[in-house]
Amino acid sequence: MIEIRFHGRGGQGAVLASELLAQAAFLDGRSPQSFPFFGVERRGAPVTAYARVDDRPIGVRTSIVTPDVVVVLEPGLLRTTSVGDGLRTGGLLLVNSPLPPARLEAPDGVRRASVDATAIALAHGLGSRTMPIVNTTILGALARVTGVVSLEALGRAIDRYVPAAPAENRAAATDGFASVRLGDPAAPSANGAARIPFAVTVPIPEGPLARLPSSSIRTGSWRTLVPEIDERRCTRCNFCWKYCPDDAIELDGRGYPVLVLDACKGCGICAEVCPPHTIAMVAASEGP
C-alpha cells in the first residue's frame, strides 16, 4: 500500500487531485481510497487530502500520519504548514516549484521532486495567476516519480471527472509527467533535525471560554497576491483601512497605511477601492 498526502490551498483543487488519483488507480485495476480532511475550507486556507492505493481493498479508515509521499500544490505552504510531518524515511516530497529538487527543504532521508506546475497550468489556461489550478499537472508528475498510476489511466480519469477543460488538463498532466525532476534524498541538516517548520500551536486555556485573540493565527500565509503601497502617491484617504475585511491595514502616525503582513489574505479590496490607484497587487512570492 502507498499512502499519499496532498497539501494545497482552498480553491486550488487538492481534494479533486486526491479523488482523481483514486479514480485513475481504479482504472488501472487497483484498490484506491481518497478523502479530504474537513477543516476550514476557505479560499486560500491550507487544505489537506489523503489517498491510499493498494492491490487489495484498503483495510484502514484513518487520516494519513506517516505518508510515503507528500504532494505540495503550493510552495508557500512549505514555509507555513508542517507538510513534512510524519513523512517516512525513504519517502518522497513532491512540490510545485520552479526550484531544482536539491534546493527544497525536506526532512532527513526524504527524496525530493519538483515540477513547475504553476507555469504548466497557466500555459494551458488553467486557473488564474492568483489561483492557478495545478492539480492535474502535479498528478502527471506524481505518476512519473511514483508509478502509482499510469499516465494513460490518469488521462481517462481526467476525461471522466474533470468538470471543465479536460483536454487542457490532460495536456497539463502530460507536461507534468514529462518535466518533473527527481533529486537525491535530503542530507542530514546541520542541527540534525528535520527543518520543515511546524504550524503555530497555542496553549490550551483553563475553562470553556475561547479567549485567545485570533491575531496569533497567521492568515497572511493564505495569500497569493500582496498589496504594494506607493506611499509617494498616497493621499492618506484611509479607504484601504476602512474597507479591509481582515483588519490588515493600520494607519501610522502620519495617516499612511501600513500593511499587517501576518493578517493580509491578499483579497485585493484595498487596491480596488484606492481612489488614486496607489496600491498594486503583486505576486506574494515577489512582494513584501
Binding site: 482552498g10 476557505r42 479560499r43 485570533s214 493565527i217 483588519d247 501576518d262 493578517a263 479590496i269
Partner: peptide, 14 residues
C-alpha cells in the same frame, strides 16, 4: 481581531 478564518474579500467579515 485579525487572523480570523473568513475567505479573502469576505463581506460578512467586514
Amino acid at each position: 481581531y485579525r487572523g480570523h478564518a473568513a475567505c479573502p474579500g469576505c463581506g460578512p467579515a467586514l
